[in-house]
Structure formats: C-alpha cells, structure tokens
Computed example of a mutant assay.
Amino acid sequence: MKFVHAIEGLSLWVGRAFGWCILILTLSVSYEVFVRYVLNAPTVWSFDMMVQMYGALFLMCGAYALAQDTHVRADVLYRLFPVRVQAVLDFVLYFLFFFPGILALVWYGYEIASDSWRYKEVSFNSPASIQIYFFKSLIPLSGALLMIQGFAELVRCVMAMRTGIWPERLADVKETEDLLTEADLDQISAMAPARK
C-alpha cells in the first residue's frame, strides 16, 4: 500500500502545483479584459498565456484526477457490481484501453516535443511569436505521470480483487456536494439513536 500511496502522493503534488495555473489564468484574463475594454489597449501576450496555462493545467492534472478517482465514468451498471467484479473490470480495461492510449501519448508526445525543441518552435497564431517548445514538453511528461499512476491503479485493482474492498485513497479536496452528503448522513446517524 505504501507503493500506491507514494505514487498517489506524487500525482497529488503535481496536480496541486499545476492547480496554481488557475490563478495565473484568472489574473491574466482579468487583466486582459481590463486593459482591452477599459483602457482600450489590448496586449499581444495575454491570449497565448491563457492558452498555455489552460493546456498545462489540463495535461498535468490528469494523474491527479486519476489518483482521486474523479475522471468521468459511465457507472450506471458498474456501481451495482460487487467490488471484486469492479476490480476485474477495471484491471482488464486498463490493459485494453488506458495503457495503449497513454503509451501513444508518451511516444508521439515525445516526438512532437523533441521536434519542437529542435526547431525552437514558436506559435504561428501569436502576434508575439512566443516559444511553445517548453509547453510541448508537458505532453510526454503528463503521459509518463498518467502511466505511473495507472500502475498504482492496477495494484489497487489487485488488492480489491483479493480483499473485496477498495483500498483507501489519499484524501485531498472534496466536492461541496460530497461534503453536504456526508454532513447529512452524519446528522441522520446522530438523530437515529435519539429516536430509540
């Protein structure tokens, strides 16, 4: 379990670090709106900054989302299955779909990034001609992080197949809806003994 939590810890750390891109993104959008519509002096760099911050956030938080089990899942039937069946299903699907896709992301992402570094690529859509080879380096890096987190998920599946219980995940932030549901359940369970 230490192996799984170590990998999850790495994914959480990277996700939290790149989560700051949201603040940079928000500030640059706010600044651009102000200078464009109030001062009538738009910038040439703001749009590029926004695209790169959003792209970095999207790429680098994938492993974080996988570690927190927050990727979108069509679980209409899945959630009704016993834990062991869920684990077998997840295990098989990781090998059939997840790992081939992530391997392609790492392989072709590396080719794209290395070509970009070789040419010192700049954005042709940008009036500022900003360099984008740094940004393209995040493509294979994000794939490698997803691959590592995927191995942790396989170990988690094996443990669930053996015990019939999903191992605990490292806790991080929770959705407000989940917090409200937990508070409601706590309130209901606190009221139950009083009724007896």
Results as ranks from 00 to 15, higher is better:
Pro193Gly: 01
Met191Lys: 07
Ile139Cys: 06
Leu23Ala: 08
Phe47Tyr: 15
Glu8Asp: 03
Ile102Met: 15
Pro167Thr: 09
Thr181Phe: 11
Val76Ile: 14
Leu57Asn: 05
Asp172Arg: 03
Lys120Glu: 14
Phe97Ala: 12
Cys157Gly: 01
Ala56Trp: 07
Ser28Ala: 10
Glu153Thr: 07
Cys157Ile: 10
Ala194Met: 08
Trp107Leu: 14
Gly150Ser: 09
Gly109Val: 11
Phe81Met: 14
Leu170Thr: 07
Glu111Ser: 14
Ser129Cys: 02
Ala113Glu: 02
Asp75Phe: 02
Gly101Thr: 13
Ser30Leu: 15
Trp13Asp: 00
Gly101Ser: 14
Gly164Asp: 06
Gly15Gln: 02
Glu111Leu: 15
Val72Ile: 15
Ser142Met: 09
Leu146Asn: 04
Ser46Glu: 00
Thr70Ala: 14
Thr176Val: 11
Val92Asp: 00
Ser129Gly: 07
Lys136Ile: 08
Ala17Asn: 03
Asn125Pro: 00
Asn125Gly: 08
Trp117Gln: 12
Glu111Phe: 13
Ser126Val: 07
Phe99Cys: 03
Ser126Met: 05
Ile7Glu: 00
Gly9Met: 09
Tyr119Pro: 01
Leu185Phe: 04
Arg156Phe: 06
Gln131Asn: 03
Arg84Met: 07
Gly15Ala: 04
Ala87His: 08
Thr163Arg: 11
Asp75Trp: 02
Trp13Asn: 04
Val38Arg: 04
Ile102Lys: 02
Val72Thr: 09
Ala128Arg: 10
Ser30Lys: 02
Ala104Trp: 11
Met50Lys: 07
Tyr54Val: 07
Ala56Ile: 11
Pro140Phe: 13
Leu179Ser: 03
Leu103Pro: 02
Asp186Thr: 07
Arg169Thr: 14
Tyr37His: 13
Met60Ala: 06
Val4Leu: 10
Val33Leu: 15
Tyr78Trp: 11
Gly150Met: 05
Ala6Trp: 11
Val14Tyr: 03
Ala183Leu: 13
